[in-house]
Design a protein around this nucleic acid. Structure first.
Lengths: 137, 137
DNA sequence: TTTTATTGTAACTCTTGACATTACATCAAA
DNA sequence: TTTGATGTAATGTCAAGAGTTACAATAAAA
């Protein structure tokens, strides 16, 4: 099991948007050319990033740009923009509630696994778009 | 995107195996009755737990039991037993290597996201089967 | 030796999500 | 009004999770 490539593609999109902002108009076709996927994939991700207030996109004339500075955008912001926020694990839904284990399994696992998820989120929040840009040079 | 219910079901399986070890023979049907899924699902998970040396299963006569003490089994051990170990995120495979962003995106994301995964694994490793058993009482 | 309960395992179906692609209406500036 | 983009719907393909049926293999007990 693996997370989809939406986070990687969204990160790539934002990096391209910032890196080339003074040289090119950042259209979905332009981004798609760097990412290597269909432009519609990029447009859908741009919509999600726009809804999360990370970029603005000029309808009609075209072109995207960041709405915050790269220091203010973390991988967690991007992750939350493109992945639906749900439990990390799918817990089986029909345990036997007449069994002492079945009765408690959901609350026990929810508590422990939510904690794991929070730890991973804190880690994602430490990584900024700026630090990734620094790695480019 | 979500991890499958294999880890939750495997944890449930091990808890049942230990909790009822002195009262019942722990067959796949018995476990399935507590988890609320088809016994074949349990048998396949038992095979994975057996391959990871966490339990032993008596073929023919039936019955499972732990091969280590609950203190020695962590959620990470169980996770590794039932989930194929792969990258946390699927990174897009055909970036444009002629682009300074496309050329570096894979190595940058691999490095940063592997680190997030390692953090989550360390967190899973802190949680033992015994601590979950304690929560049952 | 035969019966019995159980495991091991294959085969099949159903459903869902990711991803790719085509198509076209909408939009806003030149 | 033309032009180049975006917004968005529809469709197809593929892979994985989960459930189920079926049955051979196994090992203990009768």
């Amino acid at each position: 099991m693996q997370f989809s490539s939406r986070l990687p593609i969204a990160v790539h999109t934002l990096l391209v948007t910032e890196f080339f902002k003074d040289q090119f108009k950042i259209t979905s076709d332009f981004i798609a050319g760097s990412v290597g996927v269909n432009p519609v994939i990029i447009r859908n991700i741009l919509i999600q990033l726009k809804n999360a207030d990370l970029i603005e996109v000029a309808a009609g004339v075209g072109g995207a740009k960041l709405k915050k500075s790269p220091e203010e955008i973390s991988l967690l912001d991007i992750f939350n923009a493109v992945e639906v926020n749900e439990k990390l694990f799918h817990i089986h839904e029909h345990p036997n509630f007449n069994c002492p284990v079945g009765k408690n399994i959901q609350s026990i696992l929810n508590k422990n696994l939510d904690n794991v998820k929070k730890t991973a989120e804190r880690e994602l929040d430490k990584i900024t778009l700026q630090s990734l840009l620094n790695n480019l040079r």
